[in-house]
Design a protein around this nucleic acid. Sequence first.
DNA 1: GCGACAG
DNA 2: ATCTTGTCGC
Length: 221
Amino acid sequence: MQIKQRHNWNLTTSEAKIIQEELRKEVITEDRFEEPVKYVAGVDMGFEADGTISRAAVAVLSFPDLQLQEQSIAKRPTTFPYIPGFLSFREIPAVLDALQKINITPDIILCDGQGLAHPRRLGIACHLGVILDIPTIGVAKSWLIGDYEEVPQEKGSWKPLIHKDETIGAVLRTRENVKPLYVSSGHRISLPTAIDYVLQCSPKYRLPETTRIADKLASNR
DNA sequence: GCGACAG
DNA sequence: ATCTTGTCGC
């Protein structure tokens, strides 16, 4: 797929923060995409050589049957450190390289990390969504910000994630008796719809099939 | 100033 | 994220 360059990635954290504050204005948290959805993609990252090399993997699956249709891997030198709140500046460059090589444009991309559930409302899912102008969902394995009540153990139950009196996401149980996932809007999708797609992509395990497959690609060398 | 902190 | 075997619990 074709990707437009929105900004350069050689930045200081203060410059990155300014970009986040600009791009957050472009984030759309309503459902703006065509249905039925035919393809969903998962993105995951891995690192090599003490973290000096970034490795991004993309897996495109058919929906709703979740069969692998296309995959790609891209490597490039790591140029930005891991700083909570700035994950996208570390990971997106390699992700764009991997996406550039696929032929099927996914209808929705599930990202490894937060979307709106971010201090400045621009987690990696929002950032990637705005750059591509494609619907994205933030699916994080752990907490970054926000308060929430305990989530019932049953699969499908969830509680709103609240920050500054605003619902920024949901803490969702995708599997019984297992740690919940932190789901939030990335771009062009509402929270209820995002929860629905994450559940549909997670028929058996805690993590969505999209991220599970991308995960294997990213770790399998 | 202190504590928290996606991957 | 990454280093790493067996083991406890549903």
